[in-house]
């Protein structure tokens, strides 16, 4: 069968449309199908990569240790997307999904990027908050250690520092 558009190339794309119970059939070659805007499925760009994901995600099955129930439902608390849905769509629902799917996502990221840690640009404004957050975390850890070591004077000094930092971020932030 030759392409109905150009009548030159063999038809490889066969389209059946049913609109209001009226059925129409179109037979096109690859070239004409992709040139015709409405036949977009002919080069559905995102399709292959998601298939690829599904394969990668299924592979996790091998890693599930024996004795642990395999199919616990992992769901994002913010947007409600489940991990199973994600592996079908290939896209996450919201930024919280990265937290919700945690370790499972890490193994996927390692396969895609060979890494799980960002080393590039940090946003200027919210990035400074991240720096402060990191510092606070470290100070809290230090304080706990001092308490455990019964160095209460030192611990109190760190506590004051934490309070100061917290006050700064609340007052001056945003």
């Amino acid at each position: 069968m030759l392409c109905q558009e150009c009548n030159k190339m063999p038809a490889t794309v066969h389209l059946t449309k049913i609109v209001n119970d009226k059925k129409t059939e179109t037979h096109l070659c690859q070239q004409c199908a992709s040139e015709k805007g409405e036949l977009e499925f002919a080069f559905e760009p995102k399709f292959p990569i998601h298939h690829f994901f599904a394969g990668l995600l299924d592979f996790d099955g091998f890693e599930t240790p024996v004795g642990i129930p395999g199919k616990t439902k992992i769901q994002c608390n913010n947007c409600g997307l489940t991990y199973a849905q994600f592996s079908q769509i290939g896209r996450l629902g919201c930024s919280d999904c990265y937290e919700s799917f945690g370790e499972k996502l890490n193994s996927l990221l390692r396969r895609i990027h060979g890494s799980t840690r960002h080393t590039g640009k940090v946003p200027q404004r919210s990035g400074s908050a991240i720096k402060v957050k990191k510092e606070l975390e470290q100070l809290r850890k230090d304080m706990q250690k001092k308490i455990a070591d019964e160095e209460f004077e030192e611990a109190a000094r760190i506590r004051d520092k934490i309070r100061e930092l917290e006050k700064d971020t609340e007052g001056g932030g945003e």
Partner: peptide, 14 residues
């Protein structure tokens, strides 16, 4: 922005 210090800029597609 949706940004995480480990994951960087968070996007719909991983």
């Amino acid at each position: 922005y949706a940004f995480n210090e480990d994951r960087g800029y968070l996007t719909a597609c991983p």
